[in-house]
Design a protein around this nucleic acid. Sequence first.
DNA 1: CTACGCGA
DNA 2: TCGCGTAGG
Length: 327
Amino acid sequence: MGVKLKDIIQPEPINFKDLKGRAISIDAFNTLYQFLSTIRQRDGRPLSDSNGNITSHLSGILYRNSSMIEKDIKPIYVFDGTPSYLKQETIDQRRQTREESEKKWKEALAKQDTQEARKYAMRSSKLSPYIIESSKKLLTMMGIPYIEAYGEGEAQAAYLVENGDAWAVASQDYDCLLFGAKRVVRNLAINSNLGDLEYYNLKRVLDELDINREQLIDMGILIGTDFSEGLKGVGAKTALKLAKKGELENKLAKLQEESSHDISEVREIFLNHNVNKDYKIRWKKPAKNDIIDFLCEEHGFSQDRVSKACDKLKNLNSNQKSLEDWF
DNA sequence: CTACGCGA
DNA sequence: TCGCGTAGG
């Protein structure tokens, strides 16, 4: 979910040409979750191989990344590490929603209500260890680097931008702005050619709202984050008004009285996240034969389609100005 | 989600 | 050739 800032911040127009030649740090969990939710059959069943293993995420990874690389966009995936104990309530809540949705999905399937089935199936997606491991395996074969965060992937992705290893963070959640991501791209999908692609520049967002990052974080805490509930009745617009009136501190004090957790710890999560600084980013030559073995032999993909996608990956190597950057 | 085939 | 609906695994 993330923090709900949509009502007060406006995206700048951007298109794929603006991303050409640039590295983008991608929130892997965010992306995988979306693949699992959307890549489904009409009744909501995910794509799967003959052994019943889910393959929706592998399809998403293969086709999206091959298309991005064809456009000379360089993806870096960032996986979540261990969540803060403050996130436990959110995690429990998500699991509950997922389990309820799964039940409703099965019920709708029994009633042959395909539309209803699909709706609940989408909400029942789960990132199992198999999903994560098979995703990493495919990324490695494709020559696409990934990094393991110590904590939140969004924080790590933001650090990559800070450190100059990526131009922007790609995520659907606005949290990455609170984590200090200087540039954020939303809707990074190949079909968002049609103006769907959204760009947020943190400095300009803050300038426009006439606040600083600390205030944005406090606003987020009042609105509600994955790490703590917000103040009832406070949304983005109210939070912004409070910031302008200099009333954030008051309201945070009020929130603190009701909260079982220390609000200042939530601030720390956003301001001083424990990030992995010891990483190496290397795009490598794709291992086409391994990809075909893995996807076609093991998981029943069409050889023809996979082969075509693999050929797009080659563009990354041949089109480079300096090969040293890549190998 | 993206790729592909089909009809205009 | 293009846009749209649906298969893909």
